[in-house]
């Protein structure tokens, strides 16, 4: 199902993605200590930033659904946004985790460690996979929107809990580059590449949302009509 955003948004995303890839692999110099493998970092960070934006959108949409539940058109909009943004969040979180493991193997010598930051991300990912599973199991129910919105609020409330339960873990993860203290900064060219990768992914997210949301709303409409038919049959 294509709509009027399909081609222009896709073209925009492809151009931004091409620029980001060019900057990542050819333009930005390799890291002095880690070499070429550090280039994964740009898409690793970009994925997590995009996932954070998507999951924040999901929380907002869940809350707005509950507040706007009486107005069907608005409620359906927020429900569609919640469903689509959770999917985006899970995909980009998975991408970020995968990029991270590809980087960790050569640099740390292991694919995975149960480190604070990794565990936090992994658990957040699991929470939203559960959200998507719940939506799947609710398909066809007229309570789907409300039930999944309520779980969405529980899930976002659990994220800071996960963060706190991890605060005393030893961390092997590099310190944050933003406000990470002395010696944690990056040269300007690396910053530009980080933002280029992030913008490209953000454009991909927007393109997906413009395609996925009408689909979700169409699905809800079809379910409603089917229920109506069933009632009339009886």
């Amino acid at each position: 199902m294509r709509n009027r955003f399909f081609i222009p948004m896709l073209a925009f995303t492809v151009v931004l993605m091409a620029i980001a890839l060019y900057m990542t692999f050819l333009w930005v110099p390799a890291d002095f200590t880690q070499g070429d493998v550090q280039r994964i970092f740009y898409f690793h960070l970009g994925s997590f930033w995009t996932a954070s934006v998507a999951l924040t959108l999901n929380a907002l949409a869940c809350l707005m659904y509950i507040l706007r539940r009486m107005d069907r058109a608005k409620a359906e909009f927020w429900d569609a946004l919640a469903a689509s943004s959770a999917e985006i969040g899970v995909i980009f979180c998975a991408g970020g985790l995968a990029f991270g493991t590809f980087w960790a193997k050569p640099v740390w010598g292991t694919w995975w460690v149960w480190d604070a930051r990794l565990t936090l991300t992994f658990l957040t990912w699991l929470l939203y996979i559960a959200y998507l599973l719940l939506r799947g199991f609710l398909e066809g129910s007229d309570r789907a929107g409300m039930i999944s919105a309520v779980y969405g609020i529980f899930a976002i409330a659990a994220v800071p809990m996960v963060y706190m339960s991890n605060r005393w873990f030893r961390t092997q993860h590099p310190q944050p580059v933003i406000g990470g203290g002395e010696g944690s900064g990056m040269p300007g060219s690396m910053w530009l590449t980080v933002f280029a990768a992030w913008f490209a992914m953000q454009a991909l997210m927007c393109w997906y949302l413009t395609q996925r949301m009408p689909l979700e709303r169409g699905k809800r409409e079809a379910e409603r009509l089917r229920r109506q038919l069933r009632v009339e049959d009886v």
Binding site: L123, L127, A130, L134, L138, E139, R143, V150, Y151
Partner: peptide, 23 residues
């Protein structure tokens, strides 16, 4: 919450376990 889901008895632990990990 899972009263109206299909496979209810499976869904409840799938929701409960990830959220109770920090706890």
């Amino acid at each position: 919450l899972t009263l109206h889901t299909r496979m209810r008895e499976l869904m409840m632990p799938l929701l409960l376990l990830p959220i109770s990990v920090p706890h």
